[in-house]
Design a protein around this nucleic acid. Structure first.
Lengths: 153, 153
DNA sequence: CAAATTTATATCGTTCACGATGCAAAAGTA
DNA sequence: TACTTTTGCATCGTGAACGATATAAATTTG
């Protein structure tokens, strides 16, 4: 059939899209008690590794646009998790730093990765099979960054 | 280190989340000329395989909630791609069917899958490696469906 | 040094995504 | 048949994502 390639089953993207939404859903039981969302958790991960970063650095590490990250940070500031102060050398920058609450949340979030691993393995089975995807996903992501960048020229 | 597991690099979900967004971005050059978004393209794929389906069936095939799909279909109706008519046996149902425009778009969209495959391969390299992810993603998705379902009990 | 360009962030508008809730029709039950 | 429950869809509110645009500060250029 001429249209066979159009079939949903043949699509990689649909699976990535679905798997991404479902994994985010799997974080819910752990993030809801902390009052944060998955993207907010990602921002915290970035800041827990290194506090006091400009918006741009955070956006770059999360592969997000600044116009996504800025409102995200504004909501997090409103929730008392971060502060946003003007940069000193470069006053255009906004330096994002953790508040006491943001720092303390690290302790509460400590077990989330292992909880999630357990949840995934419980219903899926093979850890090895999932681990094997990681380097492929990394290559895919790097490739797509290039592809999408080339468009915006 | 105690917090090592928290590191962003160790997360599967972050990669899925990023890869999903970037692949959706890769569809842009092909979907923009048609005036549709990726989720709308997915709805069309479902209807091209079988026309005249209730909202629930479409939502189920896309692993989305009906409260996501309903507004999506409303926008698509507004754009003249689908019609939404009341069900005959079950009047609660809304049967979604393709309009002439929706049917004709199939021809215009015919080459999208191969274009996308080419884009992915161009910058990534190994088709085999990517293909190997598919069954793992399917298992992961099935597992997560179960995990997330168990929460809502 | 003044003018043009780039950079860092913010704002706006549109489209998802989904939890919570509402409502009417269908199905099940007493 | 009357009552309860379930089902199918819609609406509302919130939080992403991101293209387009704006603005001020830094940088480059003439």
């Amino acid at each position: 059939m001429e249209y066979d390639q159009l079939k949903l089953d043949n699509q990689l993207c649909f699976r990535l899209y679905t798997a991404a939404r479902l994994t985010m859903g799997a974080y819910h039981p752990y993030l809801d008690p902390l009052g944060i969302t998955y993207p907010q958790y990602l921002v915290l991960l970035v800041l827990w590794e290194q506090d006091k970063q400009p918006v741009n650095d955070i956006a770059h590490k999360l592969v997000l646009e600044t116009n996504t990250v800025t409102p995200l940070l504004q909501r997090m500031e409103k929730a008392g998790l971060v502060k946003r102060t003007k940069g000193k050398e470069d006053t255009r920058q906004r330096i994002v730093s953790l508040t006491k609450k943001g720092i303390e949340m690290r302790e509460q979030a400590k077990h989330i990765p292992e909880c999630l691993s357990a949840d995934i393995i419980k219903n899926e089975g093979s850890v090895e099979e999932i681990s094997q995807m990681i380097p492929t996903l990394d290559k895919l992501i790097e490739g797509l960054k290039q592809t999408n960048k080339q468009l915006n020229k």
